[in-house]
Write a protein that binds this DNA or RNA. Structure first.
Lengths: 347, 347
DNA sequence: CTGAAAGCGCTAACAA
DNA sequence: TTGTTAGCGCTTTCAG
């Protein structure tokens, strides 16, 4: 039953080829100083014995597991997918493999996380928010000798190679867009408060409002968690008020989708009666109806870049300390001018 | 710079605690036969030195990497997400980690795949379609001594622990639903032909048609690839014909979404002028408008079960040979009765 | 150009 | 209850 009771080892190959262990090692690793004839003989022996190196043994002595971790906290599936695809894209063709490390709550488990990573024998990790923003984790990682790169951190940008997006400006731009359309009574669905970008985006909204001489009313702000359900629930609260806002700013697309569904359920027409804007430009924002106005955050590209930063450290020790990534306002169908009658009210 | 030039090892701990290596090993692995006092002393020493076992060394000697792979081919992101979440769910709290192994084309690379898995030092793998249906891969896996479990295979069900769904009946039921609504001119968007389920679902459709005394016209069958784009393109071809069908059967939800977008673009009202049904009950089918009628395939549960089967083999060697999973027809908004005038035509 | 010997850090027999 | 001695399968000095 049990297939390989004793795997064939380098010893077997060396015996069959009539050479020493070291010579086999040299051939297998394409090192110089082996006669061509011997090289061939060893290759044939390995082939004949169906030899495959034991990567664990290699890993032990080389101190390289060739395992890269991706640490993220649950929130939005579409975000996670892009993240993964980005890392996988960079790893394609390399010897490194991707180990996914979902963490339920970075905030609650910050002290255990690096232990977890260490016990996975990772050579390096790509940190998504909010882990990428957690100084404790960065410190522990450094102490443990695990290379890392950060995605979308909001602070201590010099504490490790970082991939940055300007959350504040991005948020300012979407808010600006709604204000330009004449909206003044705008509700906000915030993201998970343990993610620093939540506060950043809020700040961006505020800047836009201030510039327009408008004000963001505190009782128009609802708490969400970056999940569609939380967006749906928040929108329900918003829409059940006697006075309905004319627009909703959701801090990510999944919550915007939730808001859209809540609106549909109440037969509130989007964008005629209610504009909804999201954040991220994730896949879902393109398949809803109406499609969702959002601001593109190049998650995929950031992930590619982060993976690249990790590999760079592992392979030649050098690090690009930071990489800025552009955001783009994407106008779609879910936002429109405020309706004339509502415009009058606040005029 | 480089954090841990020389990591602290068991040796260091044994010296500090004044005991032998083996005693340290015993304490650290909670083995019996150590005096309580000694146990404590060793624990303290380990703590003081901030000792962490080298998992690679453990893996080498124990012949266990504690790495589980998930092998899948690209098609639909939502499918992959559910798959991963299922495996991760089962692995939560266990020592095992998930390594994702996306494969561009199983059909083209079938001979290289197991080499890839071996070089990742995986203890076991969960195989999603179409790898789960590939006899060559199953054979190589067995030869390599890598445990595995299959998700939704369609043949050779006894070639390894399998999680089954009745693709034929499931497909028959959705088709039946459209036929019951009076549709007779129905187009089909097929999935990737290298996935066996594509043929199975086709068969299910045919059975339903036969039972209704109807016929599936060959020129109503369009090839897709399980991706949204391919569904969109296929629907474009379908809808550009002079005579439009009254319904579309898409072999998964992503393609159904693509079809929905094509219909929207041409201002074809769904379901009034065109019914669209999908397959999978993936996340996206719930967020489009109209929401998509589909047949639920419990991907998450199958993944949990498959991961469980792998762990079972690894931990106690026993295997549940197969597990059947139910499908459920999910009626939503994208399907409706055929319009009276079109019904007359074919009457 | 080639090989012998000494580890990597840990676990497993087998004594003591 | 504890320690000694071999390995796991590979790479790496350092001689030859």
């Amino acid at each position: 039953m049990s297939a390989s009771v004793t795997r064939t080892t380098m010893m077997d190959v060396s015996r069959k080829a009539g050479v020493s262990l070291k010579t086999v090692s040299r051939v297998l690793n394409d090192e110089p100083n082996v006669r061509e004839e011997v090289r061939l003989r060893v290759r044939e022996a390995a082939e004949a014995l169906n030899y495959h190196p034991n990567v664990l043994a290699q890993a032990l002595v080389r101190r390289r597991s060739h395992l890269i971790g991706l640490v993220y906290e649950n929130p939005s599936p579409s975000y996670v997918v892009e993240l993964q695809m980005g890392v996988l894209e960079r790893l394609r063709g390399e010897r490194y493999r991707l180990v996914v490390i979902p963490v339920s709550s970075v905030a609650e488990h910050e002290q255990e996380i690096v232990g977890l990573l260490r016990s996975a024998a990772l050579d390096g990790v790509v940190l998504a928010p909010p882990a990428s923003d957690n100084p404790r984790i960065l410190k522990d990682l450094t102490a443990a000798g695990i290379r890392f790169a950060r995605i979308a951190p909001t602070r201590d940008v010099d504490l490790g190679p970082s991939n940055l997006i300007d959350d504040v400006s991005a948020a300012r731009e979407v808010a600006q867009h709604l204000l330009d359309l004449g909206h003044r009574d705008i509700a906000v669905i915030q993201g998970d408060p343990t993610h620093a970008s939540t506060a950043m985006r809020m700040k961006g909204y505020e800047l836009a409002f201030a510039a327009a001489g408008a004000r963001l009313s505190p009782d128009r702000i609802e708490q969400g968690l970056f999940t569609r359900d939380s967006g749906y629930a928040a929108a329900q609260r918003i829409l059940s008020r006697s006075q309905r806002p004319t627009a909703i700013l959701a801090q990510n697309d999944d919550m915007a989708v939730g808001a859209l569904m809540a609106a549909r359920e109440r037969a509130v027409r989007v964008p005629d009666e209610l504009s909804i804007a999201g954040f991220d430009d994730s896949e879902v924002s393109r398949i809803t109806w109406p499609t969702i106005t959002t601001v593109r955050q190049p998650v995929f590209e950031m992930a590619v870049s982060a993976a690249d930063m990790v590999l760079a450290q592992l392979e030649h020790g050098d690090v690009r300390p930071r990489q800025d990534h552009p955001h783009t306002l994407i106008l779609r169908e879910s936002t429109g001018p405020v309706s004339p009658d509502r415009a009058k009210e606040t005029a």
